Amino acid sequence: MLSPDILHQLIKGGFKDHLVDWVERYLIQMHGKSAAEKVLDEIDKRIAAIALFAGL
């Protein structure tokens, strides 16, 4: 069984540190810096619009 701290580090390392950085580099490579920033801004807006579920 994984402790919560190890599970958190696994998710953070696998998702944030690796996957998000890879997507950012991919978007810049495929669309250029200014278009990639627009896409990333739209993603940020959509994530911010998600309702918070306190107590889960």
Rank of each mutant, 00 (worst) to 15 (best):
F15M: 13
I50S: 06
G55D: 14
E42K: 06
L19E: 03
W22T: 13
M1W: 08
D44A: 15
D5K: 10
F53Q: 11
Q29M: 09
L40P: 02
I50W: 05
H31C: 10
A35M: 11
L10K: 08
L52V: 02
G13M: 05
F53G: 07
G14W: 03
G13Y: 05
D41P: 03
R25C: 10
I43Q: 03
K33H: 12
V23W: 06
R46M: 00
H31A: 04
V20C: 11
Y26R: 04
I43D: 05
A51K: 14
A54K: 14
A51G: 09
E37M: 05
L2G: 01
A51Q: 14
G55V: 03
H31D: 04
M30S: 10
A36D: 00
Q9A: 11
M1A: 13
W22F: 04
I43W: 05
M30C: 03
A54H: 13
V20Y: 09
P4I: 05
V20H: 05
M1R: 10
M1P: 14
H8V: 06
K38R: 10
L40C: 01
G14N: 04
E37G: 05
I47G: 01
A48H: 12
L52N: 00
G13V: 01
K38E: 15
L2K: 14
I6F: 01
L7H: 04
A36T: 00
S3Q: 08
M30A: 14
G55H: 03
L2S: 08
A35H: 03
A35E: 13
S34T: 08
D41E: 15
I43E: 00
L7S: 02
F15R: 06
I28K: 10
K38D: 13
V23M: 01
R46D: 14
K38Y: 08
H18Q: 11
L40M: 15
W22P: 00
G32N: 01
I43Y: 11
M1S: 12
Q9T: 04
W22I: 05
M30V: 09
A35R: 06
K16F: 13
L2M: 11
L27F: 01
K12W: 11
G55W: 09
I28P: 01
E24R: 07
G14E: 05
R46L: 15
E42W: 00
Y26C: 06
H8N: 12
A49H: 07
R46K: 00
A54Q: 13
L27G: 01
G13C: 05
H31E: 06
D21E: 15
V39L: 12
L40W: 03
V23S: 04
I6P: 01
E37Q: 15
I11C: 02
A48T: 05
E24F: 02
V20G: 04
D44G: 07
S34W: 01
L2R: 13
P4W: 02
K45H: 13
L7I: 04
L56C: 10
A35Y: 04
H18I: 08
G14P: 00
K16R: 11
F15V: 13
V39E: 11
A48S: 09
H8M: 07
D44L: 10
I28E: 07
L19Y: 11
I6E: 15
I11E: 12
G14T: 07
I11R: 07
A49W: 07
L52K: 06
E42P: 02
Q29L: 08
